[in-house]
Amino acid sequence: MLGLSVLADSGLEHYRGSFRNPAMVFPLLSSSMAIGFNGRRLEKPLSDEKTGPLVSHLTSAATGVVGLGFHLYNVMKRPGGLTFTNLFYAAPAGAPFALALAGALGSTADRLARGKDTLGPIHLTSGRAIGLLTSFGLIGTVAEATLLHFRGAYHDPFMWLPVALPPVTAASLARDVVDDQPRQITTSLLAATAAMGLIGVGFHAYGVARNMGGWKNWRQNLLVGPPTPAPPAFTGLAIAGLGALMLMKKRRKARG
């Protein structure tokens, strides 16, 4: 889900930038690859294919980190450097981060499916590692939504929702992880966050309609209006969070 959101969003945005830098196709390739492998994993969770997915996840993560560098460079080279206008309109610093995250979550899922319960030094079966990663991811995504909705001057009160809800969700999830105790409220919050991500597409579509010419002028307005593929990033992360909670519960049961 996160992979899809990244693919569509970066596809749209890098198309807007006319792929001026050849490196701008990388996130498209790597997020497609991630979707491919992660999707197949859904069908055949226990396949023993190893290298393909591993390469994919590593590429995702690496592309994300390198992308972060590129985007930061793009911000800094503009007049004024680290100013609001550059953060608003230059390459978004937070976006590649989502790809890195997709990579990390993907490889975690992989290891789990293969019955391995550690990723390096980190214990996975507890669900706590994934939970923590998801919390961080939510906060990062919130940061980006906050910045870009500030760019839109919160002209619609609903624009506060993705700024207000996910931090609460992230905090609740983090608390469960730390206490190693999954709570019902966290599940509800995660579900709400997942739903919000989907509803967000509708709001962004409405935002596109409010540009000159509305959807009739979709070829332009999809690019200048609010990005329709972006909000489901929240859904992807929330689902990962729900997975983490499930693992935590399962383990608690096993422990009795």
């Binding site: 503009r78 007049p79 004024g80 609001f84 608003f88 309109y89 760019r151 001057a153």
Partner: peptide
């Protein structure tokens, strides 16, 4: 200001760099 600033065009960037 009620709304955020618009992106700079190239002409505006030349003003900015010149001022800097």
């Amino acid at each position: 200001y009620p709304l955020r600033a618009h992106p700079l065009n190239a002409a505006a960037e030349y003003l900015a760099r010149g001022a800097e």
